[in-house]
Every structure is written in structure tokens, then in C-alpha cells.
Design a protein around this nucleic acid. Structure first.
Lengths: 272, 272
DNA sequence: CGGTGCGTTGACACTCCTCAACCAGGGTGG
DNA sequence: CCACCCTGGTTGAGGAGTGTCAACGCACCG
């Protein structure tokens, strides 16, 4: 177990947002309660392609994804679609929708799924109890992921985005199962990958070929095989999840002054 | 007041995510407590360009922005920068960081700011009390905004993104002050706008000229003047914040089956 | 006054998209 | 058992949208 934990911790350092130490215990405890609540419900299977969330669905319960892949997407009347988030086994789906009205987004099953479901009302109860911290943890992790997605969409090219996505899946799957090899099944179509990364399926295809020719990763029959993890990490730019270290800037003129919360500042100008 | 509320409500329908009715009261109540807590602290002013959050800042308290603009950014060692979120007066800064360790992102003051600040520990207390729902509301709204940003970055072109940003600021400012005219100060530089929308400053400049020539919006000396709100909304694609209505799709083959939570389903396959 | 940050504009290059064709695999129905 | 279709993947040619590089103007400031 020691060894596995070490591996897990290494992966987590790269990919998972850590929580403040004072919350760690609260979050772990709350997560247990959440899981226990889910466990009480009967598991449900839905076939691939099902829309489990969306404008027509009412009630909008909260799901725990026990097996299979799903995604959350926004789409426009003209047919463009953006996939904001991809759910892997173990993820909780619909936390935001339990608070926010008008679930703008739809959630679609990529593969057949196994779901445990609890009702919004029950979940609302949980939100008030000691479980709150754990739910903050869930939302926060989700948001952290989307932040990174937005950053990548804004400033990184197709190769880098693809590398980031593949590394992300790898590390998330590995977190659940530290024994997983550097190879995993990726059930998404190239169209879906494109919708996630803001590319066309044609371009996704070409970039994948390029990555294969460079012997970094290859995808064959929906199986990803990572051939050079280091170079893939480097490409993805997550050899360092915290993208910038102290004072490290290249473009001098963009450097904002650091002032922070130091003493003097505070009194100097207090009361506007 | 009636009139103002009506105006506010109209803007809200477009831009603000609504909350489930059962939470509305809780959220309003919690928000009052949060605001009262902030009010107890002495306001602090920081000059433009200050980094109020980031790797070097310790403590990572939570701020309420009372005046001025700020942004949250991720940047890479090679100097690329992505601005994930822009804070306007009234926004709360640092909620996620109060939970999540390693505040990956930095927050920088665009203009001089007035801040009310409470300590993370105090905020952590709030998170357990009846205020939790309100905090969920805060995070959820923020996430909703980033979702939309990511979607725009993935699938919308420069004109549409710019329009979306300008409309978003307009509606947010208007929500705070329903009497605001169709004109407002925008303190961001074109470089910052580019970092936010994933464009170069050169391209931002050109698109702004194009929008001015089409008499949709003009920006002069950091003052945005909306000349044709309808066309701007149309461009931004937020005449309908909920981007898709029931069953409305153009590309037939992408339509996922709708199954949902209807009766039969549930029993049919219960227990995996 | 020279520096510096920001905005503006032009010329050109490159990433990525569009359109189009073709192929492979897996159902399905005769 | 074999046509047939449908989905998903692969590849090419050409083009649009953005980026890069470079120059210049203007305001602000020490």
C-alpha cells in the first residue's frame, strides 16, 4: 500500500488541486458521508448516448458516476458545440445544478453508464451539514479543471491542448487505480475531442498523427498508449501544475508590482 | 424602485444565473451575513498593478471588491498569460482559494482598488453556518461565467467573443446600478483583453475597429459606448443565455437520444 | 525632453478550418 | 451470405482567420 500511495501522491501533485490542511479532514469525512448516501440508492444503468441532464430533464438530481464516461456541453442553435467538462468514473455530476436554476448545460453519456443518484432535496440537506466542506471541495476541483481548460483554450496550440487532455485523463484514471499502466481506453470520438479542445475533427486527427509519428502518444482503436510520458508532460506544460514560480517572468513589462498584505500598506490608506 | 427592479430583472434574465427557488431565501440571507462580516473590516486601498493574490502572498484571505477592477490570471514561464476571470465592483475574490491549497492563480489590480478583507479562518467558519448556501451561490455564479468563457474560447470567433465580453460587463455593471447608461468605463488594456479572450492585442485592435465601423460599439479612451445593443447581443449570442432550447438542433446526427429520468427506466434496470 | 506604455496600422506567415473524397468496421435486412 | 448503410477515421487541396514582426503616433511622466 505504501508504494501505491506514493505513486498516487506523485500523480496528485501534478494533477489534483490540494486542499488547505485544515479542511483535509473535514473534506475526507464529508466525502464519506456523501458516498454513503449515494451507496444507499440503487445503481442505474443508462445506455451510451443518453442525455442524462438537459433542458427537458426535470428534477435535476445529483449523480455519482460509477462506471463509464460522460460529458457536459453547451451548444448553439447553429450546431456548434463546446464540451466543457468530461466526467470519468468516480466523478459527481450535477452539483452546480443543485444550486443554480436553469441547468444551461446538457450532460450526455459517452458510453453506457452506471449511476448512483440522489435527489436534489436530499443533496440540499447535505449542503448544510458538516458535509459542506466536502461539497466545496468537489465544486472547487471541478472549477480548477475548467480554469485550466479555459487557459489552454486561450493560449495554447492544438498539440499542447491534446497533450494536456491525454495527460489529464491518464492522471485521473491513475488516481483511482494507481496500478493502471501507461495505456488506457478513451471512448471519445474525434469530433468530441474537437468539441472539447476547440478544434475540428480533421485537425484533431492530424495532430494525433503527428504525435504518433513523434512517438509521444498513439491512439489506436480508442486505446491511448503513452510512449514518452516525460515529453508528453512537457508538451502539456504540466510538469508544473502551478504554471509560474515566484518572480519568474520573461516579459518584464508585464510584471505587476508585488505589494501584497504587508504591514505598512494597511494603515497607510485605511478607510478609503 | 419598481422600475429599477424591472430593469434589473431584465438584465438578470440575460446574464445572471438564477438559483433554485428553495435556495433563494437562504442565499439572500447568507449574502447579508457575508456582507455584514466584510463591513466589519476596515476598507483598504491598493494601487493599480498590485498583485493581491499569488504565489508570494501568504494567508490568502477573502476579499470583497468595493471599487475598481481586477483580474485573475494563469501564466506560463514563457510569458504567455491567460486571464480567466475579471472582477468588477461587488465581486468576492478568493473563495476557491479559501478551500483549495496552492492558489495557482494570481489576482492583479487593474485599477486602484478598495477592498474589504476577511481572514480565511473566519471565512471557513462562515462556510459551515447557514451561510453555506450563499457561498455555493458565489462559487456557482463564478463557475457559470467561466463555463461560458471556455465555451466561447472553444467555438466562437474574435468578433463574437469581444461582443460577449462587452455585453457581460455592461450587464454586470447594470445589475449593480440599473440607471447606468449604455456607456461605461473599461479600464483594461488591449493586451489584457487579448489575454482574456485568447487573442493578440493587434487582433483585438482590429476587431474593435471593425465593430466601430459597423456602428455596433465603439471604445474611445477606455470608454465603451454601445451603439446598437440588439446587434451586439445577437453577435454575442446571449439574446439567449441558455444557448439551446428544447430539442433544437440543426445537425441531426449529433442529437443524442433523450431518455432521462422517466418512470419506467428506473425500475427496468435497477441494480446494475 | 527623452523614455515608456499603450494604441494603431500594414505586410506577410502560419495555424487551423472548410470542403471533399475515400476507407474501414459493424449493424441490418433481404 | 452479401449488398447496404451509417458512423467514425484518414487524407488532400485550398482558404480564412489570427498571429508575428515592424513601424509609428500619442499621451503621460520624471
Amino acid at each position: 500500500v505504501t508504494r501505491e500511495l506514493a505513486v498516487g501522491a506523485e500523480a496528485a501533485a501534478v494533477i489534483r488541486p490540494a486542499f488547505r490542511p485544515e479542511f483535509d479532514e473535514r473534506i475526507a469525512h464529508g466525502r464519506q458521508i456523501i458516498d454513503a448516501t449515494f451507496d444507499q440508492s440503487a445503481p442505474r444503468r443508462v445506455p451510451a448516448g443518453t442525455r442524462i441532464f438537459g433542458p427537458e430533464s426535470s428534477g435535476d438530481p445529483v449523480h455519482r458516476l460509477d462506471s463509464g464516461w460522460a460529458y457536459r456541453a453547451i451548444d448553439w442553435p447553429d450546431g456548434r458545440r463546446a464540451i466543457i467538462e468530461i466526467y470519468l468514473p468516480g466523478d459527481i455530476i450535477g452539483v452546480e445544478a443543485a444550486v443554480r436554476d436553469h441547468p444551461v448545460d446538457e450532460v450526455v453519456a459517452v458510453t453506457a453508464l452506471t449511476l448512483h443518484t440522489i435527489d436534489t432535496a436530499v443533496f440540499a440537506e447535505l449542503m448544510t451539514s458538516p458535509v459542506a466542506a466536502a461539497i466545496f471541495g468537489l465544486i472547487t476541483e471541478q472549477q480548477w479543471r475548467i480554469d485550466r481548460l479555459a487557459a489552454a483554450l486561450a493560449r495554447r496550440d492544438a498539440h499542447e491542448r491534446l497533450a494536456l487532455m491525454l495527460i489529464d485523463f491518464h492522471d485521473r484514471l491513475r488516481r483511482r487505480d494507481p496500478t493502471m499502466p501507461a495505456s488506457y481506453a478513451l471512448p471519445l470520438t474525434q469530433q468530441q475531442i474537437g468539441d472539447h479542445l476547440g478544434l475540428t475533427l480533421v485537425h484533431v486527427n492530424r495532430v494525433l498523427r503527428s504525435l504518433r509519428e513523434k512517438e509521444i502518444v498513439s491512439i489506436d482503436h480508442h486505446v491511448v498508449t503513452i510512449r514518452d510520458l516525460d515529453r508528453l508532460r512537457q508538451l502539456a506544460g504540466v510538469e508544473r501544475t502551478i504554471p509560474r514560480l515566484a518572480g519568474e517572468r520573461l516579459l518584464g513589462q508585464r510584471e505587476p508590482k508585488l505589494v501584497g498584505t504587508e504591514a505598512g500598506e494597511l494603515n497607510e490608506l485605511a478607510l478609503s
